[in-house]
Design a protein around this nucleic acid. Structure first.
Lengths: 231, 231
DNA sequence: GATTACATATCGCGA
DNA sequence: TCGCGATGTGTAATC
């Protein structure tokens, strides 16, 4: 990984056109040739970048560009698309190279998958007498997160989200429409379960006869004996 | 901006739990206290990070940790949420600090707004004899991208996307449902226009009687005389 | 401030 | 490989 602190301006042309005015920034060149342009603030997202696979070519400025103060030009082109990034470097303050090797990678634990596992284990959160049929119940248009049966034996389809948005209601509606055509399942009751349900989503869901269920992740995790903590 | 190349392991606990095994990585500390952990590959996304507002505290390792080879501990805690990132540093290869100042920021040009402007100008792409009524035609549930009339005078509602996904079809469906209740507009024809339309979205749209239109952005831009190029 | 829609999204999984 | 859904999504515009 090469780290360059330089005063530069940047132009990008590809799926859109973008320009970064002259300023001091970090240029990070990764081993795969990709380039990230970072400022000293903002989020983890760079101001500008080129994703691999791509190639970086350094070149001398034209006489006119040199006149304007440019000492070096970096042109990064994407190998497959026509995307192009041009870094006009005026002054270099720092330049160092550090071979890092291949990273062993991130180990993740616990998101929607965890929420789904917990709800499957604590299926009576749906209501007294509910039983789990299966997780990821497959339909023609995709898997329903959880299929259960209520105390009376009626089918219950659950769509699970961390954040319950209008899209999730639409998704569940499509599943319900399809499943209600299946005589083995119909009538199928819909439950929209999420840690947080947006008011618009709730309104739409209830208008369509879909029940909303707000889940308390911490409480559900607390019920789970075998969970581990990092801290 | 402080740049540290170090052999380290990282643990994150917040909305999920994640762990990075021991390896050499770049630690980027921004002026606002945020931290990015980058490897020498992958995309622009860091392996792990903490977004501002947050605070970084360095501390000495415990006797046990020092025994394991840890020389320094960084604990980054988010100011509002309880998110926590712990970097266990074993060996530091490089450490430098570079004040960058505030970045003037990115200037973007040309996305959906541009596509909408171009389609409004080239409204006959919808079909011979079509005329523009207006862009951003307001309805009770939001603005329709383009309202036009066909050669026979019938209303045409256009939903515009860069990538035509199933969500866009749902959105247009809601607009059409509403607009078709308005006697001044009904019957309203729907057109789903995008640079690229996903097969599932196309199927859903056509099933609902919505016409699909694939737009060639480059060709449309080529028709536009006054467009500028960066290169 | 809360909500909505877009993104040069990236990432992982399953068909 | 491609399509699709989730993301510790982030970000800007709008209400």
């Amino acid at each position: 990984m090469r780290l360059v602190i330089a005063t530069c301006s940047v132009d990008y042309a590809g799926r859109l056109a973008a320009h970064l005015p002259l300023a001091k920034r970090l240029l990070m060149v990764k081993a795969d040739g990709s380039l990230l342009v970072h400022s000293d603030g903002g989020s983890y997202k760079p101001l500008n970048w080129m994703s691999p696979p791509c190639t970086l070519a350094a070149s001398e400025p034209s006489a006119e560009q040199a006149e304007a103060g440019i000492t070096e030009l970096w042109t990064v082109t994407h190998t497959k698309t026509a995307d192009k990034l041009v870094v006009s470097i005026y002054e270099v303050e720092h330049d160092s190279d550090h071979p890092l090797g291949i990273d062993p990678g991130l180990q993740k634990d616990g998101v929607e998958a965890h929420l789904q596992k917990l709800l499957a284990e604590q299926i009576e959160l749906l209501g007294y007498g509910h039983t789990l049929v299966r997780r990821e119940y497959m339909t023609a248009i995709g898997p329903v997160d959880i299929l259960a049966r209520d105390a009376a034996g009626g089918a219950v389809a659950v769509e699970l989200k961390r954040r319950g948005d209008i899209d999730g209601v639409e998704q569940l509606t499509r599943y319900l429409e399809l499943m209600n055509r299946d005589p083995h399942l119909a009538p199928v009751q819909g439950v929209f379960a999420a840690q947080e349900i947006k008011p618009q989503a709730r309104t739409l869901a209830e208008d369509r006869g879909i029940r909303c269920l707000v889940l308390d992740y911490d409480a559900m995790r607390g019920m789970d004996d075998g969970h581990h903590r990092l801290f």
